[in-house]
Design a protein around this nucleic acid. Structure first.
Lengths: 239, 239
DNA sequence: ATATTGACTATTGTAGACAAGAAACAAGGT
DNA sequence: ACCTTGTTTCTTGTCTACAATAGTCAATAT
């Protein structure tokens, strides 16, 4: 049964060229499972039985379990003691939490970074923006989405705050999970790609100009336009 | 050598009365190690060899390693591949990150919670404040510190934001680590206990009154008074 | 004397097997 | 017929053992 041709992750690393053991099997497992969750291959609520995953990934349980712990803390899976793990099933409250968290962390990053002394630090932001423009020109919506994430991450990175970066990355993961779940999927359907990129460019220009208030205001509208749906589609749990 | 009377964490659970296996060995290991780090028993930079820890805690390596992964993500330990783990040694930048993060998350929580519709949600805050007053009256400084953490956590909890709560708890852990390291240890030496409690009471009253701006302003001063040291005590690592 | 290279040791990474708890099912009693 | 209870099976939690790697130290050659 062990010879049933597993879709292992170890062998696939060989043709990569670099050291295959550069990263632990735990890391590989995390990436593999995360990818399957975000791509929708693993549906929300689906049980994740360790034995199944080990034979799917071609690894043993210890590294898998360590990876599961990490995914659990990332919020992508939910684990109950002695009951096993399932893919996180996000309800409307979760989506609300994730989006407010993202917005809040961006706000925090701007507060920390905002008098950007060294303009050269903005370079990565401009590069990310150029990537967006390129993708928009090619009308590659999927890539544009990824570029958008990278752009926002580069803005947050201006704060030079390692822990904040990590938190923001974790939240972005969960935002992707929201999108994968087709909850508020509108972000993927920018009516006008050019306008979408233009808003990002405007945001970056405001940052370079050095007006924190304007940036925060634009950021608020920004998030608003990207994620808030008409009221009828937001069954918020009334307080 | 296995009979060398380990300071196991399993046996100690027995006299507790409740189910000894109610929590996994991983959780027990996390708590045990975290406690030893925060108490200073494990010094910053100290290597944490898995074999040593297993015989110290009386458990085997798999659950220990899972616990280490969690501590790693909590930021209490640092792990290099194939090199092992060490207790996180925080430099001044780390301390700055942790304190700004704490401040930022509290800010975020106030923004989210601030028109507190249901005043009954403030009850846990008042209870935490009463605990502080009690500790201050008994001049129990150690307990007052813990009460202070609980108070701030209760404020953050007003936002009703599970993910934010988790993040904040993680940051508080790291704040404790800062304090354990005697970096900016002043927080533990409130000149005037009564005044310290009074400031917290004032903060809570402002929240109840419903003035977000005043709360944020007070919170800023609050953090300032608790943590900022004179420049001469800050041996910044010069670049 | 110093540098370099080799083997050795200590420690981490991984695997497979065992034990314990929880859910599902069947059989019996009321 | 339904509920209760015992059993079975599946899954997780844990342990021991093996493999691989990085650091260390000594020996030898220049």
């Amino acid at each position: 049964m062990a010879t049933s041709r597993p879709v292992g992750i170890k062998e696939e690393q060989q043709p990569n060229g670099s050291r295959l053991s550069s990263r632990s099997l735990t890391d590989l497992a995390v990436e593999a499972i995360r990818s399957k969750i975000l791509s929708g291959e693993f549906a929300p609520g689906q049980r994740l039985v360790e034995e199944r995953l080990t034979e799917l990934l071609g690894i043993s349980r210890p590294p898998l379990r360590e990876g599961m712990r990490l995914l659990q803390q990332e919020g992508l899976i939910v684990t109950l003691p002695r009951r096993g793990s399932t893919v996180a099933a996000l309800d409307e409250d979760d989506v609300h939490e994730i989006l407010t968290l993202r917005s809040g962390l961006e706000h925090m990053a701007i507060d920390l970074a905002m008098p950007v002394e060294d303009k050269s630090r903005l370079r990565s932001c401009w590069e990310a923006l150029e990537a967006m423009e390129s993708s928009a020109a090619r009308e590659d919506r999927a890539q544009l989405v990824r570029d958008g994430y990278a752009f926002h991450a580069s803005i947050v990175a201006l704060a030079g705050h390692r822990r904040l970066n990590n938190m923001y990355a974790s939240v972005q993961q969960q935002v992707m999970l929201c999108m994968a779940r087709n909850l508020r999927v509108r972000e993927h359907h920018y009516e006008d790609l050019q306008q979408h990129v233009a808003r990002h460019r405007y945001l970056l220009e405001l940052i370079e100009k050095g007006d924190p208030q304007a940036v925060l205001a634009e950021l608020a509208v920004h998030g608003e336009r990207s994620f808030t749906l008409p009221a009828e589609e937001v069954p918020k749990t009334a307080p």
